[in-house]
Write a protein that binds this DNA or RNA. Sequence first.
DNA 1: ATTACTAATATACGAGTAC
DNA 2: TGTACTCGTATATTAGTAA
Lengths: 233, 233
Amino acid sequence: MSQTTERVGHDELATLKLVALDGALEGRATVTCAALADRLDASNQTASRRLQRLEDAEFIERNMTGDGQRIAVTEVGERALQREYADYRRLFEGDADVDLSGVVTSGMGEGRHYISLSGYMEQFRDRLGYEPFAGTLNVELDDESVRARARMDALDPVGIDGWEDDDRTYGPAFCWPATIETVDGTRYEDVHVIAPERTHHGTDQLELIAPDRLRDELGLNDDDHVTIHVSEQ
Amino acid sequence: MSQTTERVGHDELATLKLVALDGALEGRATVTCAALADRLDASNQTASRRLQRLEDAEFIERNMTGDGQRIAVTEVGERALQREYADYRRLFEGDADVDLSGVVTSGMGEGRHYISLSGYMEQFRDRLGYEPFAGTLNVELDDESVRARARMDALDPVGIDGWEDDDRTYGPAFCWPATIETVDGTRYEDVHVIAPERTHHGTDQLELIAPDRLRDELGLNDDDHVTIHVSEQ
DNA sequence: ATTACTAATATACGAGTAC
DNA sequence: TGTACTCGTATATTAGTAA
């Protein structure tokens, strides 16, 4: 019974930003309504209500501790903040594009199998405009890029629907248009970052699909450094 | 008779962000209340009232055109947006520091005269912790940095008060702690960017003060490229 | 078509209070 | 001390109009 009364207005978002600045994104923030009220320029009742609504909307999780509460921003909450951040990036930087870098790895080789399934392949053809090579290029992101990757959530992706055959179900995925560049400046334009719709947060693996085998086109080997530019549509 | 009823809450700020995204920062945005209301998920009456309040608070300027209105965000409004942006940068990038780059120029040589006046010099000693060399290093910012410079408004500076002697008045100024680095990697840590409190927006000149003559310490000549890192206090 | 007024209604707020 | 009720009051919102 998801009681999301959905009463998250801009006031609640401002409150979310405040507790996030207190460290509620990573780890947990220890907060009291009185201290929050002070910074919100409102009463502690209002601060309390704001937090309740953020909790109702599943933007935060709370643990009462007797002398306050420990707050953690959920993925839903972080996505809301990332969307807001993307708006301001568009305002002052011109776009909300995300630059990632890392090194080529062999990965699990799982991609190859899934990509080539007709249930996915047909959607790639329709929605991406090409039939991808039957395999993914795996990139292990550096630390900074693992954090920057979260900004991708604010860019709207091409949706790939889940489907099922007689045996099992195949989950939905997201694709983001991107370009990839090697250290010597060679670029390949029509790439897509692909990730399961319900990706586990903070993964350092990035999977790319493209019309061609990127290792061949760009002369890439394991541990070669590449930069990926994920753009707005 | 400044009728700033100061009723700018988070709802108004969200509205300001929307019109800014429509181009109200540079140039002007053509907007109708109905279209705004749609995006705000509110009635056009509410959209109208939000714009009125933004105008009352001097966050925007408006020109009614019969088939809508043209809106321009004022400097006050832009500063509010920059502060918000800085918060999100702190959230997701760890800090709101500003990196600027440009080339050394001779400037007007005005700095030398003002800096050495005791009315300023005493404040520098007290508030910056050193007596600056009697002259400024002038840097002509590149285009990208001219835009990035606006982000400095969101970093709180050291205030230098205005004062007056028998002849004239001397205006207040702001100082931001910074570091400067040359192309060969030489750095000088205890620099301050200095600017008049009421600076004209969009200037491409940056003035730096430091305990020593930076041209000597860093071996700089005109047209040498430097990068300046303006940090939070 | 606009924007913005007035008036009825819905929502938010904070004082008091309970736990 | 905490958080979060209730409840009377202040504020915000929107429908209906006017300009």
